[in-house]
Amino acid sequence: MPDARPVHEKDAQRIKTAQAGLRSAQAELEEAVAGALLNGASVRAVTELGISPNTVQKYGRAHGGPTEVNRSRFNETRWDRLGREADEERS
């Protein structure tokens, strides 16, 4: 087995900085996905941006979704949706 050699302080600091950036980016991604869902985007639409459906749903649930509005829109018929969207356009 090779001998254990220490990590140079400069390398260790670089690794720690990269890890902190990764955690920050991960948190931002989760909040952005959940925000899109809470703003009415569908899971399918968010997955088209390159995130798996399971991950999108996980982030949504972790940050307060699905809302009652999302649930009701999921259960509405095509005709209900067309009527709602027409009403929104008139407003």
Results as ranks from 00 to 15, higher is better:
Gln19Leu: 15
Gln19Glu: 14
Gln19Cys: 13
Gln19Phe: 10
Ala20Leu: 15
Ala20Val: 07
Gly21Asn: 15
Gly21Val: 04
Gly21Ala: 14
Leu22Pro: 06
Leu22Gln: 12
Leu22Val: 12
Ala25His: 08
Gln26Gly: 00
Ala27Lys: 05
Ala27Trp: 07
Ala27Ile: 07
Glu28Thr: 08
Glu28Phe: 03
Leu29Asp: 11
Leu29Gln: 13
Glu30Arg: 09
Glu30Pro: 02
Glu30His: 07
Glu30Cys: 00
Glu31Asp: 04
Ala32Trp: 04
Ala32Ile: 02
Ala32Tyr: 02
Ala32Asn: 10
Val33Ser: 01
Val33Cys: 02
Val33Pro: 04
Ala34Phe: 01
Ala34Asn: 05
Gly35Met: 04
Gly35Leu: 07
Ala36His: 02
Ala36Trp: 01
Ala36Asn: 04
Leu37Ala: 08
Leu37Trp: 07
Leu37Val: 07
Leu38His: 03
Asn39Pro: 00
Asn39Tyr: 01
Asn39Gly: 14
Asn39Trp: 03
Gly40His: 02
Gly40Asp: 01
Gly40Asn: 07
Gly40Val: 03
Ala41Leu: 14
Ala41Val: 04
Ala41Asn: 14
Ser42Asp: 10
Val43Asn: 15
Val43Phe: 06
Val43Met: 11
Ala45Tyr: 01
Ala45Val: 07
Val46Ala: 01
Thr47Ala: 15
Thr47Phe: 09
Glu48Gln: 15
Leu49Phe: 10
Ile51Pro: 09
Ser52Lys: 12
Pro53Gly: 06
Asn54Asp: 12
Asn54His: 10
Asn54Met: 05
Thr55Gln: 03
Thr55Leu: 09
Lys58Leu: 00
Tyr59Pro: 10
Arg61Lys: 15
Ala62Tyr: 00
Ala62Cys: 05
Ala62Asp: 14
Gly65Trp: 01
Pro66Asp: 10
Thr67Lys: 05
Thr67Glu: 06
Thr67Tyr: 08
Thr67Ile: 08
Glu68Val: 00
Glu68Met: 00
Val69Asp: 01
Val69Trp: 01
Val69Gly: 01
Asn70Lys: 05
Arg71Asp: 10
Ser72Thr: 02
Arg73Lys: 12
Asn75Glu: 14
Asn75Asp: 09
Glu76Leu: 07
Glu76Gln: 13
Glu76Trp: 13
Glu76Arg: 13
Glu76Thr: 00
Thr77Leu: 07
Thr77Lys: 13
Arg78Gly: 04
Arg78Lys: 12
